[in-house]
């Protein structure tokens, strides 16, 4: 039972991060392989804040704001330019973030990470147990989905689509393309920060390996499988992809090969979907 609940909770958390990726990859069509890094910043920021005695809502807000700002700051230079700079900054951000998580030991605990992150409690109800936490994660995913839906149907959302479809025509229409992209980049960062904070609460332990580049690839795979630019896609993807490791554990594999095999599977999935189903299962053309 607990096992099943954990699966649900993790899938919900990753669905929030997949939505964050969707804003970039699906909505404005830029590549991102640093979602895990941003998620990690959210997780560390939350953990450090809460353990310093800051109350839950404030710590959460702090994590979200920090991630939004970070995403804007790191994407600013590459968004100002055309072409493939974004690929480089995205890879770079991921690698630098991992280096910081590992090496800034005084704050992040280095390779041993941070353990014993307390779960919030509301009037006697603690979110330690999956039975309770699942309400929190479901609620958060509900809010995130509502936000996504509202944003996409607003005039802002329509403008973002237009920018992806033809940036030059959007400029000719007098739109402030950079400002719009930065706005969505902030939202994307906020979503990843929320996902990271929830992850930290649920696991009560974080270390650099949870936010490595493999995880970023995992998140991208979720989006690609579910399908870009739809709410359904971002939610479906994590539920499917998180089931893959479970299936791998059913095969009796040597333990040291499980990690690489899983990543291999994700690689194969990415390539196959790009070749044969770039829309994903429930998405739109990218």
């Amino acid at each position: 039972m607990n096992f099943f609940l954990s699966y649900i909770i993790l899938a919900e958390i990753f669905a929030i991060v997949a939505l964050s990726t969707n804003f970039l990859v699906g909505v404005i069509g830029i590549f991102s392989v640093s979602q895990a890094a941003i998620m990690g910043v959210g997780a560390y920021a939350y953990a450090i804040a809460v353990m310093a005695g800051i109350p839950f809502p404030l710590a959460l807000l702090l994590a979200i704001t920090l991630c939004a700002l970070l995403n804007v700051a790191t994407s600013l230079p590459s968004l100002r330019l055309e072409g493939d700079y974004f690929v480089v900054t995205s890879f770079g951000l991921q690698i630098v973030a991992t280096a910081v998580f590992m090496n800034w030991s005084a704050v992040t605990g280095g390779t041993s990470g941070i353990a014993g992150i307390p779960a919030p409690r509301f009037s006697g109800l603690s979110f330690d147990e999956p039975e309770n936490f699942v309400f929190l994660s479901t609620f958060a995913l509900g809010l995130a989905s509502a936000g996504y839906w509202l944003l996409m149907r607003s005039s802002y959302g329509r403008t973002l689509h237009a920018i992806r479809l033809d940036e030059l025509a959007a400029v000719a229409a007098g739109r402030h393309v950079l400002q719009m992209k930065l706005g969505i980049s902030a939202v994307s960062g906020a979503y990843a920060g929320l996902g990271g904070a929830l992850y930290a609460i649920f696991m009560s332990f974080i270390d650099p390996s949870s936010f490595e580049i493999h995880v970023s690839v995992l998140i991208l795979t979720m989006l690609v499988v579910g399908g870009a630019r739809t709410l359904a896609g971002s939610i479906l993807g994590p539920f499917i992809i998180l089931a893959v490791p479970q299936m791998l554990t059913l095969l009796a594999l040597p333990p040291h090969l499980i990690g690489p095999l899983r990543s291999l599977a994700f690689g194969v999935i990415l390539v196959s979907f790009m070749l044969w189903l770039p829309k994903g299962l429930a998405g739109r053309k990218i």
């Binding site: 944003l151 237009a162 229409a173 902030a186």
Partner: peptide
């Protein structure tokens, strides 16, 4: 109509804060 809406001189509502 969205092609036209996106091109309107009126830039209000074109930010995530208002939208969400």
């Amino acid at each position: 109509i969205d092609n036209v809406i996106v091109c309107l001189a009126d830039d209000s509502g074109n930010d995530p804060i208002t939208a969400i």
